[in-house]
Simulated assay, not measured.
Amino acid sequence: MYDKKITILLATYNGAAFLEEQLSSFANQSWKNIDLIVSDDGSSDNTLEIIDTWKKSWSKGSFEIIQGPRAGHAENFRYLIQAVSDKKTYVAFSDQDDIWHRDKLEVAMNKLISMGEDTPVMYCGRTRLVDVDGNPTGLSLT
């Protein structure tokens, strides 16, 4: 089971303030086989520099940076899903300001795989809301 690949699709736009902590949470995932595709939608801050630095040290799989469509976040995610060439990978979506618990992908994969590999499934988790200092303030509605 643990040899299955997950591809994280990360849409960015001027997200430099969040990326170090977020990418660190991806690197610290208990799941070992993770590819990452980042689509930047025309950032003018140092988002691209941060992403490029992480690409050079990424050791869990491949790390690809692509230029986004520059048409907003929804189009950027549509663009990302079209960039996935491996049809056998599991896909996880991430906004640029997410911080993931260490076992986020492992919990999701355990549930998905338990449904059977020939069954179309989707896994969604609730969002824990935090303030600027990282203190929990509640959960998303769904």
Results as ranks from 00 to 15, higher is better:
N76F: 06
A108G: 12
V107H: 05
R128T: 11
Q82P: 04
D98F: 12
N135H: 15
N76P: 01
V107A: 09
A92V: 10
N76L: 00
R78F: 05
P136N: 03
D95S: 07
Q96G: 11
T142I: 13
D97L: 04
E106H: 09
I99H: 04
V91I: 15
S94I: 07
C124S: 14
V84W: 04
A108P: 04
V84D: 04
E106R: 08
N76T: 07
Y90Q: 04
R126V: 10
L129P: 00
V107E: 08
D131S: 05
G138N: 02
L105W: 00
N110G: 03
L105Q: 07
V130G: 01
G138D: 03
Y90I: 04
N110C: 07
A108K: 02
T142E: 14
S114A: 12
D98Q: 10
D95H: 06
R128S: 02
T127V: 13
I113C: 00
V121D: 08
R102T: 15
R102F: 06
F93W: 11
A83I: 05
N76S: 10
S140G: 13
N110R: 09
T89V: 06
V132D: 14
N110K: 08
T127P: 00
D95G: 07
W100V: 01
T119M: 13
V130Q: 06
M115Y: 10
E75I: 07
